[in-house]
């Protein structure tokens, strides 16, 4: 390996996992993905040029495609995007240094996949519902509606703040309701921070293979009950990105 190359690490898998020949890595042109074994473990890696900046959309997509594709056939511990080491020796050092902990974590992830439920409030539906319930906000709405911002700025800020707080409260409640409704079909759950100001729910679940169907049905029911208010999406199956914590593994 030349001076100017490094190994990009995607994830850690059991040693019997082999990348398929068509697996494409990050970089342009995409690097070939190989497995470097140590003991019961292997790391999925591909060579990258150190001069080449990474993080293009295609790099992120390749990283996710490889990890999600692996996760449906074998447990995988995602390694943070952008982790590059000097060479194969460094990969083996990494696997050796944490062998037992990685192996135990992989055992726990056997036959488990992540699903993320992400929902967004319909803005008009949410706000009209809020105004119908909150007389003070409705009065403010009457004051600002149809008036230019410059004349009604203070009232607008107050009204907007009330709406924003209502969204936050409702989001907490929806996250709780979602976990109550579908959490029993999952091994673990974690509420994620909102990624949009109208986010209604955002929770990741770790789901066992034999509970997948029931889990999905429960999410469908949840979505159905809120179909006018929340646009609900189910993203997955995914590698368990939200269920490997750096701290848990490194301590």
């Amino acid at each position: 390996m030349g001076q100017e190359n490094g190994l990009f690490i995607y994830g850690i898998v059991p040693s019997d996992v082999e990348p398929t020949p068509e697996a494409e890595g990050v970089g342009s042109p995409p690097g070939e993905v190989i497995a470097i074994q140590h003991g019961e473990l292997a790391a999925l890696v591909s060579e990258v040029g150190l001069e080449e900046p990474l993080g293009r959309p295609a790099d992120l997509t390749a990283y996710e495609r490889l990890l999600d594709g692996t996760a449906v056939v074998a447990p995988v511990l995602p390694v943070r995007f952008g982790t590059v080491v000097t060479g194969a020796d460094a990969v083996e050092d990494l696997l050796a240094a944490h062998h037992d902990r990685f192996a135990a974590a992989l055992d726990e992830l056997e036959d488990r996949l992540q699903y993320t439920v992400h929902g967004r409030f319909d803005e008009q539906e949410f706000i009209s519902g809020f105004l119908a319930e909150n007389a003070a906000a409705a009065a403010l709405a009457d004051e600002v509606r149809g008036r230019p911002e410059i004349e009604s700025r203070e009232q607008r800020i107050r009204l907007g703040e009330m709406i924003s707080q209502a969204v936050e409260l409702r989001r907490e409640a929806e996250n709780r309701d979602l976990i109550d409704a579908v959490g029993r079909y999952a091994e673990a759950d974690v509420a994620l921070p909102p990624s949009h100001e109208l986010d209604a729910v955002r929770v990741s679940f770790l789901v066992a293979g034999d509970e997948e169907d029931e889990f999905v049905r429960a999410v469908e029911d949840f979505a159905e009950r809120r179909r006018d208010l929340i646009r609900t999406r189910l993203i997955g199956p995914l590698a368990p990105y939200d269920f490997v914590s750096a701290h848990q593994l490194v301590e």
Binding site: I9, L60, P78, R80, F81, T83, T116, Y241, V244, V250
Partner: peptide, 12 residues
Amino acid sequence: VVETVLDKGVVI
């Protein structure tokens, strides 16, 4: 993709 993978995973 960004929301799913960014700042997740094992840190060396």
